[in-house]
Computed example of a mutant assay.
Amino acid sequence: MTGRALLSALSGIGLLCAFLAGPAQAHPHVWVKAKAEILFAPDGRVRAIRHHWSFDEAYSAYITQGLDKNGDGKLTPDELAELAKVNMDSLPEVEFFTIAKINGRKQEFGTPDEAGLVFDNKILTLTYTLPLKNPPPKSRSFGIEIGDPTYFVAFEIVEAPDAVVTRDAPAGCIVRVNRPPKLDDDVAQKLAQEDITATPDMSGYEVTTRALVACP
């Protein structure tokens, strides 16, 4: 599966075609500014990742068309609930654009929960909790990768102190974030000129952000 699945998940019937025919005549098609919280259990093990994904203005505008049921000019969480459910039903197909490793071993995810969407009339933000299925009791090293390797969706971990943080972590745990280098202008131009229905060859390019939580 590729990032197309997220486009399908978020678009709803008809909106995807309208979006791709409009401002998305290039790769990537959607831009996401992301934050992540690493949630620890009382026994010190990592229990979940709390994702916060804010979509670009153009995509947010297209995806929220027709969702204001009462016509008051505002979108409430209730009006966005169905769209949030579509997200959570479809994101497993792309493994939530997330890889998690504990002590170097890839982890499986459980069923996500606490999912919701908010819209501030410009930006649509999806928040949800992604639990680890069987985390080991000791998590000296917890690593995550966030991104779409096919580059249909461009994830950017925000440049902020709370970009990747821990919650209830044991004393002494530290977080390091490694963002991918910016693509060269010629590469970006080439991607912009490609057929929007084609999957770009991103081999040799780093487009995912890595974060590492190291605990004593």
Score class of each variant (00 low, 15 high):
W31I: 05
W31F: 09
W31S: 09
V32S: 00
K33V: 08
A34W: 04
K35F: 00
A36K: 12
A36D: 02
E37N: 10
E37M: 09
L39C: 07
F40P: 05
F40E: 03
A41I: 07
A41P: 02
A41G: 02
P42T: 01
D43W: 01
D43N: 15
D43V: 07
D43K: 10
D43M: 03
G44L: 08
V46M: 08
V46P: 07
R47E: 13
R47F: 01
R47A: 12
R47T: 08
A48E: 11
I49R: 01
I49S: 00
I49D: 01
W53N: 07
S54V: 09
F55W: 06
D56E: 10
D56L: 09
D56H: 13
E57N: 01
E57S: 05
A58V: 09
Y59H: 14
S60N: 13
S60I: 11
Y62A: 08
I63K: 10
I63M: 12
T64C: 11
Q65C: 09
Q65H: 10
Q65M: 12
G66Y: 04
G66E: 06
G66N: 11
G66C: 10
L67P: 06
L67C: 02
D68R: 15
N70P: 07
D72V: 10
D72N: 15
G73R: 05
K74R: 13
K74E: 13
L75F: 08
P77T: 03
D78F: 08
D78M: 14
D78A: 14
E79F: 09
E79G: 04
A81I: 00
A81H: 09
E82G: 11
L83K: 14
L83W: 02
L83G: 05
A84G: 07
A84V: 04
A84I: 03
K85R: 15
V86W: 14
V86F: 12
M88R: 09
D89P: 00
D89H: 15
D89E: 13
D89Y: 13
D89L: 15
S90D: 06
S90W: 04
S90M: 07
S90C: 05
L91D: 08
L91I: 14
L91N: 05
P92G: 07
E93D: 07
F96I: 03
T98F: 00
I99F: 06
N103H: 02
G104W: 01
G104P: 05
K106A: 05
K106Q: 12
Q107M: 13
Q107G: 02
E108R: 15
E108W: 02
F109A: 02
F109K: 12
G110T: 07
T111K: 10
T111F: 04
T111R: 13
T111C: 01
P112K: 08
D113C: 10
D113N: 15
E114G: 10
A115L: 02
A115E: 13
G116Q: 14
G116L: 07
G116I: 08
L117K: 06
V118A: 12
F119L: 02
